[in-house]
Amino acid sequence: MIAPGSLVCAAWCAAAPDRLTHEDWRRFLADPNPAAPSETPTKPPVLSQVPPMLRRRLTPLSRWVLHTWYGACERAHIDGSEHPLIFASRHGEIAILADLLDTMSQGAPLSPTDFCHSVHHTPTGYMSMAAHHRGISRTVSAGPQTLAAGLLETWTLLHTSDAPYALLTAADEVVPDVFTEADAPVPPAAPYAATFVFQREPCDATPGTPAAPRLDLSSLGRDIDLRALLREL
């Protein structure tokens, strides 16, 4: 069990190197044996919504996160800056951290910007700056149970506040091989991000449109991964 209740998913948006559109994800979720992610490095999304001055500073992880955050807000027809955001990430800015460790071991000066960017919750700082968000932001991590921790934090926030919506973003980069031995890789195999717009109760559906799916958190295990979660929706 993740939480003693349910969440209504008004919309979601996910992105990974081989899957940038909703149709790509629908195909991936319908496929009983999806192909392994491509080994080819793919550039993170461009993000035309973010002013160029700010866009240049974004970390790769922040780009994946912001791409799905804007996408989910658009699909749900909401202004994301008004709602709590929950970022669930197992490794945070792990690629930048690897670069900093290399720099330190060479005795070279650390870049102050890279150091600031190495904190786990960097993407939430950029979400705040890009959307002028001055509200609630949480960043949680729990190894293989990170997605479940994000779902629980989202559910709890919605049940202890007046917020009508809360946005959960799960995202991770590939762990650079300096941290792990080749025989013990740590997920994920490719970078990804996914943002969910959650509500406690569904809004009155427009006649003729399908009702937003309800996610029963009491029936889900704490080890749930992104694909299993999306298949529930």
Partner: peptide, 21 residues
């Protein structure tokens, strides 16, 4: 449930709010 909050220097203050919730 067992999880860690990590928002740099506000991490443990946020964890306490989350715990109370």
């Amino acid at each position: 449930p067992a999880y860690t909050h990590s928002t740099a220097c506000a991490s443990s203050a946020r964890a306490m709010l989350s715990a109370a919730a």
